[in-house]
Design a protein around this nucleic acid. Sequence first.
RNA 1: UGGGGCAUGGUGCAACGGCAGCACACCAGACUUUGGAUCUGAGGAUCUUGGUUCGAAUCCAGGUGCCCCAGCCA
Length: 560
Amino acid sequence: MTNEPAVSASNFIREAVEEDLRISRFDHVQTRFPPEPNGYLHIGHAKAICIDFGIAEAFGGKCNLRFDDTNPVKEETEYVDAIKEDIRWLGYDWGDQELFASDYFETLYGYAVELIKKGKAYVDDLSADQIKEYRGTLTEPGKESPYRNRSVEENLDIFDRMRRGEFPEGACVLRAKIDMAASNINMRDPTMYRILHASHHRTGSKWCIYPMYDFAHGQSDSMEGVTHSLCDLAYEDHRPLYNWFIEELGIFKTRQIEFARLNVTYTILSKRFLKQLVSENLVRGWDDPRMPTLCAMRRRGYPAQAIRNFIDQVGVAKNENLIDISLLEFNVRNLLNKTASRVLAVLNPIKVVITNYPKGQVEELEAVNNPEDPSAGTRTLQFSRELYIERDDFREVPPPKYFRLSPGREVRLRYGYIIKCEDFVKNQKTGEIEEIHCTYDPQTRGGYALDGRKVQGTIHWVSAVHAVEAEVRMYDRLFTIQNPNKVEEDKSYLDYVSPDSLKVLTGCRVEPSLANVKPGQQFQFERKGFFCVDLDTKPGQLIFNLTVPLRDTWAKIESK
RNA sequence: UGGGGCAUGGUGCAACGGCAGCACACCAGACUUUGGAUCUGAGGAUCUUGGUUCGAAUCCAGGUGCCCCAGCCA
């Protein structure tokens, strides 16, 4: 792999794996990433992916991609394809090990029969409600189902008929016979199979009984020779059951290790909630750049490597965590700073007329493409009498420490000239500044003050006649509070969706070198931020996404 | 009130009986033709109470707090 490793630092999982190898519990390392194809991957999955593939890679092992597709009513091929694309984009490769739990349905069925024969599983005719009732509570033991002691023959017969479709959904389930008084509720005769007369995205109508997660996951791991099954802390309570099935079946013993899932400030990483944002049109889709999904981050211009670096820095532990989104943004900036070409783009234009500049004259000026990377070369900028600058870069009454343009003051136009504001036109009704009149100093071509005079401010600009129009989509955090997962009792995370998360700017003016860019291309709009060309861009209709803004020291000063 | 898990600066992660360190964030300064980047510096943490020890974030005991578990979801 050519990418830098994610999860490079030592952590408790690496230590555990090292120990397993040292004591010869295993002589190699095999992991797996097991998504359920019922939604799109998000930044939380990225952590799991980096850990699963990263651990394998670190120990010279392999990582399988296995779709955990045991619930046909929720799963779709569309998601399978999207998930594969996202993992590949992150930079990981599962070789030919693209596997599906549904490929194991026949084997799993055989395992179930085996357990029935051992007297370790039975068909229960209790209704879902009754099973729930019989399960007991967190503090009281459950009680045994009246069907718990059916004969092996009867169980075998009914289970076979379940498979053949003789019963409607909910009529019965196959349960493991463990211990209804177990302190761990997962051990109170968990359901192994349920009846679902649903078409499966891969097996079609071949099956009408489907294994539950607990009866599918561990055995799938085992069949694949997975040595280390790394998963969410949520499955800690399931480990005894995971081990129980493997033990009773006498199959290859894998080791499950759990780690804390990722949480990020100002965002939500629950599939259910993300689905809701999409279905209620609070965002424009799964790949809306405000979403924490990988496809959204890709569309927004977050480099995959930046995400991997972020995951690496987040670390791996068992503590519940809430990572500051600024760490992700730092990584995005850090990477883009080295790679993105600089361009001049005016997001909120106001016209500047250089009154002493000859009408009709056009000069060509040289601009550096990337000060961080001399090999990126230079390009040419057109300068003329009428320009656009950023509305923010002019103040009729400049506040203290404001270095930009204001009446009587000088400012440098990047790569251009030093200009002085002589006058401005104000709409008397609205109070809006409509035009600024300046003079330029012809001795300062390129922006150099040969007389040594100090000009504090440098602003960006475009030539009015040469500039190209564009739409720019400015994104901000989707939620107004740090942790939308924890809200006041009578509130929902939906109450905290930010009304300002998307601002569409039209009539922006960008330098002409951007006229023919392609979706996905990334740039730094100087002094503004990193932007990328959106998928919606068509010939003659430029659309940019704000990837991440530049740090804005002035905004900080001004807000004080 | 059952079971499982976790407690280190604002947020994360390290330190594995021997000077509590790193990153992000925050603050101050230098530099600057991006108020970007870069550079320098500062502040700020071991949940609590006991015990073991020459020495405890680390080991032991008791408290406290937080998270997860009662799907025919994964």
